[in-house]
Simulated assay, not measured.
Amino acid sequence: MSGICAGRVVVVTGAGRGLGRAHALAFAAEGARVVVNDLGVGLDGVPGADSPAAAVVREIRAAGGDAVAHGGDIATTQGAASLVRTAVETYGRLDTLVNNAGFLRDRMLVNLDEDDWDAVLRVHLKGHFLPLKHAAAHWRAEAKAGRTRAARIVNTSSGAGLLGSVGQGNYSAAKAGIIGLTLVAAAELARYGVQVNAVAPAARTRMTERTFAETMAAPAAGFDAMAPENVSPLVVWLGSAASAGVTGRVFEAEGGRITVMEGWRPGPGADKRARRTPAEAGEAARKLLAEAEPPGVAYGAEERGSGGAGGHGS
């Protein structure tokens, strides 16, 4: 198959349903050979009886593409290592890793159990770190052997990681952590030919159907703005050699809209060049806040200013 990913080998985690499935199909349509990872768990992380990864592989093959399923737990060292090994042993190489796996256990902070905190951070944040680590180790070895790849990593954050989301303290913290991980990985792995970016998608999936239930409009003129397939073109481009020179960036993607996020740049500042009293520090802070842009509003919070909010990612 021809396309911008022809000849590339792409791994997509959490690819049995929703965004991951859409990404896997889109990569295959652009000529990639795809390793479809999915543990086959429910929305709450509990294993199910079916094999969604195998179903996606059948879809890809039926369309003339090439894919293989991987059912390991990528939030474990063994599972992440076997994910990379599956790509290399099956197809002889690895070019792109798309970290997408995740689930929700939503609670207000005062009701959030430690187990729910640990489970969500484990799958989202650790489930990004371990595949990234093992893929990076492979690409470092390839680079040292004189086979530097145009390697790509695309991580999945969320509007909740950019702005926060009421009732999702665990999820928001994990998704914010993924942005930090993306920035570090982009800086550390550039020497090996690896580009690392993140997307904060807004789409209708199992994880977001309740969030969007009251706000989703009906498709207009045949265009379903909340379809996960709308996010995949950007992910495919970021995962292709065509994205050369783009790294350490965060994009929001929703419907037909793509936004480059520009967070945490220095705003107004003042330097007394001496220690302040608490009262002086407060006075200076008040003046600087009056000059600063208002913050975005956390999803689910009451309006607290004119700062806009982007799409709620998954």
Rank of each mutant, 00 (worst) to 15 (best):
G7D: 14
V10H: 06
V12N: 12
G14D: 12
R17I: 04
R21K: 15
H23D: 15
A24D: 06
A24V: 09
A26F: 06
E30A: 10
E30D: 12
V34D: 06
V36N: 09
G42F: 00
L43V: 04
G45H: 08
G45N: 10
G48E: 11
P52L: 04
A53L: 12
A55C: 02
V56E: 05
R61A: 09
A62S: 05
A63T: 00
G65F: 00
D66F: 05
A67P: 09
A69M: 08
H70G: 10
H70S: 09
G71L: 14
A80V: 13
S82T: 13
T86M: 13
A87T: 08
V88Q: 08
T90V: 01
Y91H: 13
G92I: 09
R93C: 12
L94K: 06
L97A: 14
L97W: 13
V98P: 11
N100K: 11
M108W: 15
L109H: 03
L109R: 00
D113H: 07
D118M: 02
D118G: 03
A119I: 07
V120R: 07
F129Q: 13
L130F: 13
L130A: 13
K133H: 15
A135P: 10
A135F: 15
A136Y: 11
H138Y: 15
R147E: 09
R149F: 06
A151D: 04
R152L: 07
V154N: 07
T156F: 10
S157I: 00
A160K: 00
L162S: 00
G169Y: 00
I179R: 00
G180M: 14
L183P: 05
L183V: 10
A185I: 09
E188W: 04
L189Y: 14
R191F: 09
Y192R: 03
Y192N: 03
V194T: 12
V194M: 09
V196H: 03
R204A: 14
T205M: 09
E209S: 13
F212E: 02
T215F: 04
T215V: 10
P219N: 04
A227T: 01
P228Y: 07
E229F: 04
N230D: 06
L234M: 01
L234Y: 01
L238K: 04
G239Y: 11
S243N: 08
V246R: 01
V246L: 09
R249Q: 14
F251C: 02
R257I: 07
V260S: 15
M261N: 01
M261C: 03
G263L: 09
P266F: 13
R273M: 03
A274N: 00
R275I: 04
P278C: 03
E280W: 01
A281W: 11
A281F: 06
G282V: 09
R286F: 11
L288F: 07
E291N: 06
A292T: 08
E293I: 12
Y299D: 00
G300T: 02
E302I: 15
A309F: 05
H312C: 05
S314M: 04
